[in-house]
Design a protein around this nucleic acid. Sequence first.
DNA 1: AAGCCGATCAACCGCAATGTT
DNA 2: CAACATTGCGGTTGATCGGCT
Length: 268
Amino acid sequence: MGRSPCCDKNGVKKGPWTSEEDQKLIDYIRFHGPGNWRTLPKNAGLQRCGKSCRLRWTNYLRPDIKRGRFSFEEEETIIQLHSVMGNKWSAIAARLPGRTDNEIKNHWNTHIRKRLVRSGIDPVTHSPRLDLLDLSSLLATLINQPNFSSIGLSSLTPKQPLQNFNPIYAPNLDQNIQTPITSVSSQDSQPQAECTTPSNNEATYFDPVNARVEVSHADVLPPLSESFDLESLMSTPQQNSIEAEANSSSFFDFGFPDNFTFEDFMLN
DNA sequence: AAGCCGATCAACCGCAATGTT
DNA sequence: CAACATTGCGGTTGATCGGCT
């Protein structure tokens, strides 16, 4: 036997709420206040499960809910909090006035998470994951260099420990993403960059999918031939300005000390 | 015009935590 | 203290919409 249902399924309506139902719920809570969700539907004249009423109220009808697009500051806050808390959506929502955990969770899954992945950031660990980037075009550029053989892919040792990795540079590794992650804003929630289909000619040399390369291009730079100007490859004039913007942003400057713990955060 | 497909988000489900008896 | 009820939470689903072919 399974668990008993949270409410009597017979005669309980499911699916989208109508404006009439919303109004009934609002009127009832306005008069009696929220709570006692089990008996609320009956008392309010709703053919709904109490759980459904609570969810509708907390996620949609509550008067203090701020609706509309997430601001740049809100997105920054979500990313920072998620890097510390993980998928503790309610805890994150508690620090974003007017936003619900459901809304934040949806926004994370549909916007922020994808953007981090495109930028080579693991959305779970918030650490750089170059294997999440579209490295194909960069590698295609590399192998087309006349002195490619002197570059020494041995420096691209999979699972090499990170040293001095600056995630701000991670977007620049993806030559197809011309927009840095720091440009995320409420007016700019749609991706401005398109990822091109990977070319086939790099697979002979390097498998970016199976090799988890955890090194930054700054780590890779030293072994490169001096005649090979990867810096200029990385830094188009547009991207110089982007880097300046990125460096002036606190997007990844979480400001947490090294010994900062989740408990510390919760006590703040 | 119609069908397909991906993105979005409201709503649901089931489990865990907490409260009450 | 156990059993049950209630509430909270996070993962998942499915309806809807817009863009593309």
